Computed example of a mutant assay.
Amino acid sequence: MKPDACSIGLFNGDQVLLIQRAYAPFLGQWTFPGGRMEPGETPLDCVKRELFEETRLLISDPIQVLVETVGEGAKSYTLAVFAAHCPMGAPVTSHEISDWDWVHVDEVQSYRTTDHLAEIVHTCAQYLGLAEVER
């Protein structure tokens, strides 16, 4: 499957950065930073651009973890999910984000998230070799 959108899980130890969407799709839901690919853009370029646009955070070596189909209503996207280590800091968020939080990986399920986010968080953590967050 060729992705048309990308997102990224940023980890600092057993904490993951979640953002709350200010607009549809996924209005009010907590998820990873990310968005739609632009014409001619690679998934890696997309995820770095979207992360910077939404949070002003820069990362150097994200790992693509999985590709999944996500959607809301009649619209669906093929989403490439990346993961990376990131120093814990305060993002400078765009208007697309209503809130953000560094969340312990075991507390993700207590947030109103996009589908399967808690499982995706654990999968990303495993790809990054974060043994302390394995199930």
Results as ranks from 00 to 15, higher is better:
E107L: 14
E38C: 07
Q64K: 10
G40R: 08
C124M: 13
L57G: 04
K75D: 08
G129P: 10
M88W: 11
M37L: 14
G73R: 12
V121W: 04
L27F: 11
E41H: 02
L10T: 06
A74P: 11
F11S: 03
T113I: 06
R135G: 12
E72A: 08
L44G: 00
G89F: 00
E72W: 06
T78D: 01
V70M: 13
A83H: 03
L130I: 15
H85Q: 09
Q15H: 09
L130C: 08
I8W: 05
A80E: 05
I8G: 05
L66K: 12
Y23K: 11
G28H: 12
N12K: 11
I120E: 05
W102S: 11
L117Y: 02
P91M: 12
E54V: 00
T69F: 06
E119F: 08
G13R: 14
V47Q: 01
A118C: 03
S7R: 01
Y127C: 06
G40S: 08
L128N: 07
Y77L: 13
V47C: 03
R56H: 14
G35Q: 05
I59W: 00
G9F: 01
G89A: 10
D101L: 13
Y111P: 05
R21T: 00
L27T: 09
F32A: 03
C46D: 01
A125H: 02
K48C: 04
V105W: 02
V70A: 13
V105I: 01
T69Y: 05
N12E: 14
V92D: 15
F26T: 02
T31C: 10
